[in-house]
Design a protein around this nucleic acid. Structure first.
Lengths: 326, 326
DNA sequence: TTGTACGCGTTATCAG
DNA sequence: CTGATAACGCGTACAA
């Protein structure tokens, strides 16, 4: 591995001159520059980013923690964020916790060791103070950890209202909505409270059911959907995250329900899973693009030492009407 | 940021003693140890991984290049690899190229700068020598770049044969198979040659159609599927990657074809996309788990300076029969 | 315009 | 058992 000194020696200059040529930090005589550039080529010189990072106390890398990279919502979000970071000259370190709290904690500790310049938290099973104690720039997604921690999040209240509208238009009488964490700090829980609020106001019965984060097992979700539909035969409307919604769709059809006449379905998130199905599912779409852009934008500001103008950034959601509602 | 010297000063010892306590590289008197541990706690000391990495010329990070993290096959594979790496104490840097050759090249250049200890190449649009010139441990996935570059890949010939069996059992007369790169160095292309070979031997007409890597646009795939089915009305069998297969399923049903009587479908890859659909699609499953395990295993060997016993590692594939074939 | 000397945080070596 | 010193590769005052 050729170092900057090897290049300097070959070009008969000092190491710092080589550095200057690379970074354009000072004027260098054209001939000297040429000599150095030749030497670099000849030695196939590649600067050591680790050493650079050590000097400027920066690694040029950002970490993103998520529960699982194979979950369509997070894989989509990770994609958007990675693209944006790449554009800005940053690399992405991806950390899946698999829903294990210990793993989340361990990752956070690893990330304290200067290998990343900032963190995007797409998972949140720790106590608030554990996030607050993290002393590098950090952005929370979908979880309000209080204090000065900035949060980027979809407008889930609107999401809940948009779903409610569709259940009303479909003349539903009993709606079930599925979520994985009943916790007010989890912002996405607001789509459930908003939905319930709107349905109650319209005199439509509804019930929230919690299904634990399940490492991604469709047949498991299918079983749960069947069980729920059998336990509550009067149900004529369901809202659930994309994959769970697909499970309900399949289960409802198996039980002979007519869609959307007997049964309305709204899928939350709006990843491609809602498109790929044979039936176009009505869905509330979180814009991964916009979330990613905003997240990276404010993370860059923080890493540059700037202050943010606000703590919470709300991203618009939209509804895409499909064949599962009237 | 407290450094090791700050700790040393506070404990009235030399920096190297602190280092010894942290790494257990030598015996330290219990009292000295205690003093140092107290000082570390008090200063909230966290070792700088960047400096450590610089010293031992290792970063503890592995990069994986893939075309897109939101593609279900790659997101699943990335998940398996990240898990395995985490288990072994390595971090994963994820690099999406979006199918852009320039971006692949740029990423490779970035990765030469010592920020990763090894690379897993899940994308391959460059010339073989560009991979060969990369002087860190590198494992190729699904692409044979020649020379000494190790490759981990599914047994695509078996995959093709397994698919052929199903088309025969379904009494197909004209099978279309969709791929994205007709190139013998791309190992997955072998599923097409094997399929064609088996079908030809059985006297079944078949045709390979190339569809370019399309940044993940289901409606686009749906249009293509429709066009193909209209252009070749005699087609009664299709093999395609999961998402494209879903598009064909939808298009075929729209055209009034009965499945599996008029039309047989085999989906290649076997990600959850094949499960989530209303109809269970017969699919050839690449084991992301096994690919991930083997890839990490041999990458670790290379990074430890060991030699590999062979260059090509073949991973078994299986077929999961669904409702889209007889 | 160019070179010298030092610091970034850690660890290995060698001496005591 | 412990400390001083050098080294990893690079960037920047400061001096020439």
């Amino acid at each position: 591995m050729a170092s900057i000194r090897d290049v300097a020696k070959k070009a008969n200059v000092a190491a710092c001159t080589v550095s200057r040529v690379m970074n354009g930090t000072a004027n260098v005589a054209p001939e000297t520059r040429q000599k150095i550039e030749d030497a670099m080529k000849e030695l196939n010189y590649i600067p050591n980013e680790l050493a650079r990072g050590m000097f400027r106390q920066k690694s040029g890398t950002v970490a993103m923690l998520i529960p699982s990279i194979r979950h369509p919502y997070f894989s989509n979000l990770a994609h958007c964020i990675e693209s944006k970071l790449y554009e800005k000259g940053y690399k992405l370190m991806l950390c899946s916790t698999d829903g294990q709290i210990e793993r989340e904690r361990e990752y956070i500790n690893i990330l304290k060791t200067n290998i990343v310049d900032g963190v995007i938290m797409g998972v949140s099973d720790l106590e608030d103070n554990e996030y607050q104690q993290f002393d590098k720039p950090m952005i929370m997604l979908d979880y309000d950890a209080g204090k000065k921690l900035p949060i980027v999040v979809s407008d889930h209240e609107k999401g809940g209202r948009l779903a409610a509208e569709k259940f009303m238009e479909s003349q539903c009488r009993y709606v079930i909505h599925i979520g994985d964490r009943e916790l007010s700090k989890v912002e996405s829980y607001k789509c459930h409270t908003a939905l319930a609020h709107a349905l109650n106001a319209a005199g439509i019965e509804n019930r929230f059911i919690e299904i634990k984060w399940n490492e991604f097992d469709f047949s498991g979700y299918l079983e749960i959907a069947k069980t729920i539909l059998e336990k509550y035969p009067q149900v004529d409307g369901v809202m659930a995250a994309d994959i769970q919604a697909a499970a309900f769709l399949k289960a409802a059809l198996k039980l002979g329900k007519k869609i959307p006449d007997d049964f309305a379905l709204v899928s939350y998130d709006g990843t491609y899973v809602a498109d790929v199905n044979l039936v176009n599912v009505t869905s509330i779409i979180q814009s991964a693009d916009k979330i990613g852009d905003k997240t990276v934008e404010i993370l860059l500001k923080l890493m540059a030492g700037q202050k943010l103008t606000k703590r919470k950034y709300l991203i618009d959601v939209v509804r895409k009407d499909g064949e599962t509602t009237k």
